[in-house]
Simulated assay, not measured.
Amino acid sequence: MGEDHLDSRLPTVTGEVGEAPEITFPDIEPPEEEIAGVVAEGSGEDELVRADDLLVANVVQYQWTGPGEGEAVEGQSSYETGAPDLIRMGEMPEQITDLLVNRSVGSRAVYVFPPLTEEEAQQAEAAGQEAPAGASVLIIDLMARHGTGAVVPGEQTTDGGDGLPTVVQEGHSEPVIEVPEGDAPEDLQVVPLIEGGGAEVEEGQQVIVQYTGVPWAPDEDGEHPVFDSTWSRGGAPFDTTIGAGAVIEGWDEGIVGQKVGSRLLLVVPGDMAYGESEEEAMGAPAGTLVFVVDVLGAYDNPPPPEEEPAEEEPAEEGGDAEASAEPAEEESSEE
């Protein structure tokens, strides 16, 4: 979309995609209808956004309060937090996604949502929320996409084996895991089947993965059926915080420190998974589990909100605070 096709009422947004934008508000009242446009086009047809993608985006929000006036919304800039947003296209409203589908990674979109009606403002206030003044302006920078069925690039340098399961994957199909006979290893095993070329995954980051998992122990038919897999959900990538207890310990320890772009074979003992027994597992698979995990991406999480220090009550004159500053007299041990 060239500048000739942009709505003239849109704010002017400048700066490189991937850096905090600079915004100039038109010298008019905020419009009473939704308007939107792509103000910067990314390059590359091989990175077009699809309707079922998981997007990595930097998002900034402003309030357009009057002619030529507006301000950034505090705490609503991923450029300030250093943590991009993960956007599941299938879960977003159409007024957001319609503009993004078939856009290239590296594009920048701008949305203007009209001021709240009096009824909407009253509903917000009744819910204990402050009703914002003016129109809301949203800027979305498309930084990366992870599509359905995405896998890491490259060829496996090993398929496992040597007492561990073997893994075969053809193209973008679900990996096939063959578990050997015999006892499972007692300790966590991590084998990079493909070693990625990206940065090392850090504790506390958001990771995006494809994975499949089977139990080490065979069922009554001698099979090792898949108990959980992104492929069973259509190949939609899974995202979670790693290294912080959001997933099983075997994932936290096995994935942190590995490189983005890696395919990992994880053999996780029961005490690092859901438990050794069915009673411990409480419906989840018990015992040693085998996973194949493609680490598609790793991104920082926003820092936790700072807690305001509790206010100390002033001590009364001659009170406890003053007394505590004096050394206590020792009682004599002699009678």
Rank of each mutant, 00 (worst) to 15 (best):
D7K: 06
D7Y: 01
T24I: 14
F25Q: 09
P26V: 11
I35M: 03
A36T: 10
G37P: 01
E41S: 14
S43E: 13
D52S: 13
D52M: 08
D53Q: 05
V56C: 14
N58Y: 09
V59A: 07
Q63K: 05
G68W: 13
E69I: 04
G75Y: 03
T81G: 06
G82K: 04
P84L: 03
L86D: 11
R88A: 13
G90V: 08
V101L: 06
S104A: 15
G106W: 08
P114C: 09
E119T: 15
Q122D: 15
A127K: 13
E130P: 00
I139H: 04
I140M: 13
M143S: 14
G149N: 01
A150L: 03
E155H: 10
T157C: 00
D159S: 15
G161C: 11
G161F: 10
L164A: 02
P165L: 00
P175M: 00
P192C: 01
E195D: 11
V201A: 01
E203Y: 02
V207H: 05
V209E: 03
Y211C: 01
G213W: 00
D219H: 03
G234Y: 06
G235Q: 04
A236Q: 12
A236V: 14
D239W: 11
G243F: 08
G243C: 03
I248D: 10
V268A: 11
G275A: 09
E276N: 15
S277R: 09
D294N: 05
P302A: 09
P302F: 08
P304L: 06
P305S: 03
E307P: 06
P314K: 04
E317T: 15
G318Q: 04
E322S: 11
S333Y: 08
E335I: 00
